[in-house]
Design a protein around this nucleic acid. Structure first.
Lengths: 154, 154
DNA sequence: TTAAACTTGTTTCTATACGAACAAAAAACT
DNA sequence: AGTTTTTTGTTCGTATAGAAACAAGTTTAA
């Protein structure tokens, strides 16, 4: 009996539910970790930018020229419907401008405004702190390992 | 010059945006990895259960007795407002029953139905496959490392 | 015991996130 | 040229997710 790690109760449970521990599942943990990060982000970010809005605006600010709405969405892994909402809110805050493309009349070409670029500059040290705070439970070495493996899961 | 890893362009960019690569940030990667998992989950799951609904129903099925709505929510890391919606949808599908507590008249006590329990049993091999598919880009050893570190970030 | 503080659950608001259906325009193909 | 397919963007519906404000009931403390 000394070699058996399961008691009668879990033994019986596993006859029906073999070895599925919710708190160890990748999906459950990803949701919780993402939630924690979102909380940290919302608490610290300036200008009322959400994490999603920051990602999109940051990408746009880094562009050399204008880019279409859907193309920008793809660069930050958002589908067209989601992109539409995020862009609208950035536009409403005066961080982004949209203009009809003359060549392709379906397209809206997006550009960041001076206000948008200034906000990103101001936010940079803040988001670095957010990254640091999110990774705080890990050592430097663990963080590097984690990020490397996480990137493989995307 | 051979020892320098940066070209003129990135050199100039970093004068304003020091060393912040969006695609390497924990928040950006967590969102993408979570999205990928959600896609896998939705594609494979039976009974139309979402990942969130599955988590909550699974927890409830594992309970020995009834539990209050908010308490169940806390067990799966959902706030009261979110819990309310998820429970309503589970109830609408006949997977869960709610009953007023006689002792504490604020409370709704929840219990899984036979249908709910049967669905969880049927879903178990499916969700194991989902976990496996999500972790497929990693080796066994990498998966263990990743899950250990991910748990620390929750 | 009465008042203050907390808990439980609800509703409303805002913000992702995606599927599906759609119109308009562009591109590819026959 | 004319047809088919694809791309771009929109709208609608559903599902998390959390903040805020609220009512009702319970617990704690003075």
């Amino acid at each position: 009996m000394a070699s058996r790690s399961h008691d009668e109760t879990s033994e019986q449970r596993e006859r029906f539910a073999p070895e599925y521990v919710l708190d160890e599942q990748i999906g459950f943990l990803l949701r919780k970790a993402y939630q924690r990060h979102q909380t940290i982000f919302t608490d610290r970010m300036i200008g009322g930018l959400t994490a999603t809005q920051f990602s999109m605006l940051f990408r746009l600010v880094q562009m050399t020229g204008p880019i279409s709405q859907n193309a920008l969405g793809r660069l930050v892994a958002m589908d067209a419907a989601t992109t539409k909402g995020v862009v609208s809110r950035l536009q409403a805050q005066g961080l982004v401008t949209t203009e009809r493309d003359t060549e392709d009349k379906r397209r809206y070409m997006l550009q960041s405004t001076a206000k948008g670029r200034a906000l990103i500059q101001e936010a940079l040290p803040v988001v670095m702190g957010i990254t640091e705070a999110t990774l705080a439970p890990l050592t430097k070495r663990e963080s590097e390992t984690f990020l490397r493996l996480l990137a493989k899961l995307c």
